[in-house]
Amino acid sequence: MSSSESFSKKEKEKKKLKKKQDKEQKKEERKNNTDKGKSLEEMFVYVDEYGNITSTPPDPTKKTKINVEDIAISTAKYEANPEDLIKSGIVNFYNTDKGFGFIRDLKTQDKIFFHVNGLIDAVKENDKVTFETEKGLKGMNAVNVKLQK
């Protein structure tokens, strides 16, 4: 039994030594492949006309002149129509004691929360209403809720 323990110890020592040698070898490889000490020109990379990275500088004869005034960086202005902001839906749930409820939007079928403070007309469940939405703490809230005529 003592011989197997000594064999096991020898194997562990071999593994330790092998690990140490591998670590030293990797350290030497990193040291040899480092970018330190290279000149600035050796560290430059270029992008060709197709967007690929290359080590050769671009050909100055292929250079094209671009007028700065021709560059347009902007987004189209969005003017919201007041009719787009007003949505219609059906009161899906309304708790009069707690003063809140949910409206199911007729177009998107989303449930939108509303509070009694956002009501213009008195509503009850299954009433058709028109409303506007605004961003709340937990999602979209319906405001200016009116009965649909």
Rank of each mutant, 00 (worst) to 15 (best):
E83G: 07
T61H: 10
A72P: 09
T96V: 14
N67D: 13
I120F: 15
P58A: 07
D97W: 07
K111G: 03
K135D: 03
G99D: 15
N141W: 00
K98M: 08
A142F: 00
K65C: 01
R30N: 11
G101P: 02
A72C: 14
K138C: 00
G99L: 15
D97T: 14
K14V: 06
R104S: 06
K138L: 03
T96R: 11
K26C: 06
S55D: 15
F7M: 08
Q109N: 15
G37H: 08
N92H: 08
S2C: 15
E28S: 14
V68I: 12
I53S: 05
G139D: 00
Y46Q: 01
D59G: 00
E41M: 14
E11N: 12
E125M: 12
R104L: 11
T108Q: 02
K9H: 07
S39V: 10
I120N: 05
V123Q: 06
E24A: 08
G99V: 12
E79K: 10
P82W: 04
G89C: 03
K16R: 12
K63V: 01
K138H: 05
K111R: 07
K18E: 05
I90S: 05
G139V: 04
K36H: 13
G37C: 10
T56L: 11
E41R: 09
I66K: 01
D105I: 03
K15V: 09
E134P: 02
K98F: 03
K10T: 12
K20R: 12
G101W: 04
K62R: 13
G51F: 01
N52P: 08
T96L: 04
D70Y: 04
T75R: 09
Y50Q: 12
I66S: 04
N92G: 12
S6N: 13
I120Y: 01
A80E: 10
M140G: 06
M1H: 15
K9W: 09
S4E: 15
N92D: 09
V47Y: 00
Y94G: 01
L137M: 14
V116I: 15
E42W: 01
G118K: 02
I71R: 04
Y78V: 15
E134D: 01
K138Q: 05
R104I: 02
L119S: 07
N67I: 11
S4D: 10
D121N: 05
K16Q: 04
F113I: 01
K124Q: 15
L137S: 13
E42T: 08
K36G: 14
T96C: 09
G118Q: 12
K111V: 04
T64F: 00
K38Y: 14
F93I: 09
A80N: 12
Y94V: 00
G139F: 14
K135W: 05
E134F: 06
Q109C: 09
Q25V: 10
D105H: 01
Q21A: 07
K138P: 04
K124G: 14
M140T: 07
A122L: 13
S55R: 15
K62Y: 02
D22N: 07
D22M: 01
K26V: 05
K62E: 04
L137N: 10
S39I: 15
L17Q: 06
D127I: 12
A80G: 10
E132Q: 11
S8H: 07
F100V: 02
E28I: 14
N95S: 09
E13Q: 02
N126A: 05
